[in-house]
Simulated assay, not measured.
Amino acid sequence: MRMNALTLKQLRALDAVARSGSLTAAGEILGLTTPAIHTQIKGLEDALQVRLTQRAADGGGSELTEAGQALREAALRIEEILSQAEANLEAIRRGQVGRLTVGVVSTGKYFAPRLVKMLQERHPEVEIALKVGNRTATIEGLERDAFDMVIMGRPPRRPEVIAAPLGPHPHGLVAPPGHPLIGHEAEIEALFAETFIAREQGSGTRILMTRWLDRIGEGRTYDALEMDSNETIKQAVMAGLGIAFLSLHTVTEELASGRLVALRAPGLPVERHWFLVRPEHARVRDVTLRIWDDILGLEGRYLPKVPGD
């Protein structure tokens, strides 16, 4: 294999084929002709002596082989590194020491901007970028070294990470005002007769909700209505479509104003912790360690206060 013969143009052509599903569509993405895309892919295959694309399973278009998928993963990591380098260079050009990228799972977006503001006031020489995604997307970002550090719930097993606790993270059930289960601890049968408005598969909140219901329900089935954001779920609960298991840090304003009410039920609240995480094997810059230590030194002062605590 002649890895030193690969070019960014070739790797971007491979990624475009993976994203679009055909050489022609890949050419449209990159502003190239179909023969030009074919030439780029052929150059990769000649250098690596392995087949990278094949006819799609449905008979139309192209898809990556197993080797092609492995090479694309490497290409995505390269693009992440180049993007971070570009941002760092731009920050340095403006007189800063560099740029720090902080990933946060969706539930953390309710307090992460407050944390970033505190860090900016303490470290004006550092540009801090915030990227929000669900748990699956955040872990994928960790694997690609897309983040300097991440704020999340339970740290992943893979990739291997260094993790430090930031503070408590309570979860509970919320319902609209006037719901019949308000004011007393809900019985199991009445609870499982409700419709649960749930986050999408892959969400940390969805995983925690499923485990809690399985534990208290001992195998009982329940109806779930899936929605892909906490904001949509809150609006659905207030509209009377069901009840929801959510991080209580996402509903502090609604609980304080009475637009939502926390329900009492067995095993609630489910107490977890927020963690600050960074890849274990990544090269760590001095600025990353400085901000890491500063976040830990804040001792969770940016975390929301849940009404009634």
Rank of each mutant, 00 (worst) to 15 (best):
A5R: 15
A5G: 10
L14S: 02
R19F: 06
S20E: 11
S20H: 10
G21K: 03
G21M: 03
S22G: 06
T24E: 11
T24N: 14
T24F: 15
E28Q: 12
I29H: 08
I37F: 10
G43Q: 09
L44G: 06
D46P: 02
L48M: 10
V50N: 14
L52F: 03
R55K: 14
G59A: 03
G68Y: 04
R77Q: 11
E80Y: 09
I81H: 15
A87D: 13
N88A: 08
Q96H: 13
G98C: 08
R99M: 03
R99K: 14
L100M: 04
V102W: 05
T107D: 04
K109P: 00
K109L: 01
F111K: 11
R114K: 13
H123L: 12
I128P: 03
A129G: 12
G133M: 14
R135S: 00
T138D: 03
E143H: 12
M149W: 01
R157E: 03
I162R: 15
H171R: 07
P177T: 07
P180R: 14
A186H: 07
E189Y: 05
A190I: 07
E194D: 08
T195I: 08
G202P: 06
M209H: 12
W212V: 00
D214P: 08
G217F: 05
Y222P: 01
N230K: 05
N230Y: 03
T232N: 12
T232V: 08
M238Y: 10
A244H: 09
L248N: 03
H249D: 06
T252D: 10
V261G: 04
L263S: 04
A265I: 01
W274E: 02
H281Q: 13
R283Y: 06
T288Y: 08
I291V: 09
D293L: 02
D293H: 14
D293K: 15
G297A: 15
L303R: 15
D309V: 11
